[in-house]
Every structure is written in C-alpha cells, then in structure tokens.
Design a protein around this nucleic acid. Structure first.
Lengths: 137, 137
DNA sequence: AGAAAAATGAGAATGATTATCATTATTAGT
DNA sequence: ACTAATAATGATAATCATTCTCATTTTTCT
C-alpha cells in the first residue's frame, strides 16, 4: 500500500475521472489500453480495487452483475431506471432530515455513518423510447 | 405465465417467506431440497425469477456478487453493514418529505415511481465483534 | 386415454472476477 | 552505481453465480 500512484494507476484514475458514465472494469480496460497498450485486465482490476481502498474512487453496484466505478466520492444520491437499469447521479444535494435518518438507524441498531437515497423510475431516454414505440406501432 | 403456483414454486415461496435473512438462490436450493429432494438448481433460479415477475418476492442486490430474495414486497428501507456487508431491513416507516423526493427526481428527469433509503454503518454484530477483538488482543 | 403445451432437472456454457506464478520493474542498503 | 530484496505486472487458468440447452416428465385440455 503506497501513497504515490504509478503510471498505470494514474492512467486508470484519470480515465475514471474523465468518464461521466460510471465505467465498468472492461470499459476502463479498453480506454486505458489506448495510452498503455501492454496493460493487462488483471492489473485493471487490481488497480481499481486499490483506488477504492485508498478512497480515490467508489464502487457502485445495482441491477446487473458488473460493478461500476465513480470518481465522484462525495456523498450523493442516485436515480435508477426501472426499464434499462441506468444509474444516474442526482445532481443536487437532497437534504434529508437528520432526525429521520437517526431514528431509522436506531431502529436497526447500526452505528450510522452515511446514507444514500435511491429513486426508481423511467429515465429520460426510456421515456422517449416508449413514446416513439407507441407512435411507430 | 400462470397465476396458480405449483408445488415447486410453492415450496420456494414458502421458504423465502419463512426466512428473515434475505436468502440467496443457493440457500433457497439447500432448504427446498429437504422437502423436494429431486429439485434442480436451474428450477430454483427459474422459479425465483417467476416469483419476482409476479411480484410475490423482490430481488435485492448490494455489495457482493450474489443476489438475494425478500418476501417483504412493500416498500421499505435498508441498512447495510460497512464491515460485513449484511443487509438489514429498517423496521419502521421512514417518511421522507415528498417534495424533496420530487425535486430530486426532477433534477435527473426521471419519471419518479418509488424510492429506497440506504443507511450505512456497522451492524450490531460487527460492533460487538470489534469490542471483543480489542479486549482479546 | 391421448395430443399439445408447459415445466423440469442434469449438465454444459457464459461471463465477470480472482488467483497463480514466472517475469519485470522498483526500492534500499552499501 | 551494484546487487539483493521487494513489490508490481501481465498472461493465463481457475472460480463461481447465473443462464442456456435439451431430452424427459408432468400437466392441461378435450
């Protein structure tokens, strides 16, 4: 565990930071290959795990079986499309009442440290597709 | 797609309902095998998917790579242990202000239909273990 | 009963992730 | 700078949850 990042790690971190679409390990691999063609997929996984452990990035999981990465490490909330599964960042700060969060935590006995709000519904793209679908048929 | 459940499906549903621990497909398989020893794992997966589709149960996913099932289909929130990954139901209704949810949905453009609050922190078991760990060492 | 349709289970296939390990790069001590 | 020790790398095999395939069995309908 070192503090300083080497070239491979820097390339991975830069890629995740540049992407706004929560890339998967494979997507990171394909993008980083452009700059560092000799890098292996195993290193991508290793480096992503290290970056998560060192808090440079966060790991995201939802519906599908691949996990995604996000360089936006500050606490924020997500919207999940019930049709296509897309995971969107909620771009505003949703200030939930602290007392409600604490009451909920107390009800389970956990030592409350953070939270996330998830909204479910059809994303703008899928709403558009649904309309188009109807008019076409 | 039928309305009526057959014996295998009933056995699976009963097991998921009886369990309070969000069982995985393998756990359901092992438990259902006791009553119906000839059942195959493929059927467990098929039946679980059908039950989800027919809204008898819900599928849950968090940190690990296995998906879990829950017969508690009413909207409710979860607490996730940051140490062991346990997913606990929050046993009270957390009434978040509707206007905040709607504002958040509007910010992403999704057609808001439901939501889930996730709390993160150490679960009671892990809190206990941490204390024990310290006194032992 | 008998034909058609659906469900079943055994095992193979898939696909993301992890482990292994020989090789290469980096660091530390002198 | 020179070597010994240590860590990082990448190719490939292994793992494991889940899905697919398909021949057989069960159910449904008449």
């Amino acid at each position: 565990m070192h503090d300083r990042l080497n070239k491979n790690s820097m390339a991975v971190l830069k890629m995740v930071r540049a992407s706004h679409s929560h890339p998967t390990a494979s997507e990171v691999y394909e993008a980083v290959r452009q700059e560092r063609p000799q890098i292996g997929l195993a290193s991508i996984y290793r480096i992503l795990h290290n970056l998560v452990e060192q808090n440079y990035i966060k790991e995201l999981r939802h519906g599908d079986d691949t996990c995604r990465y996000d360089a936006h490490t500050a606490r924020h909330d997500h919207a999940i499309c019930t049709q296509c599964g897309a995971l969107l960042d909620i771009p505003i700060d949703v200030a939930l009442p602290q007392d409600l969060l604490e009451a909920a935590a107390q009800a389970t006995g956990i030592e409350f440290s953070s939270h996330e709000l998830r909204l479910y519904g059809r994303c703008p793209t899928c709403q558009g597709q649904a309309v188009q679908h109807k008019t076409v048929e």
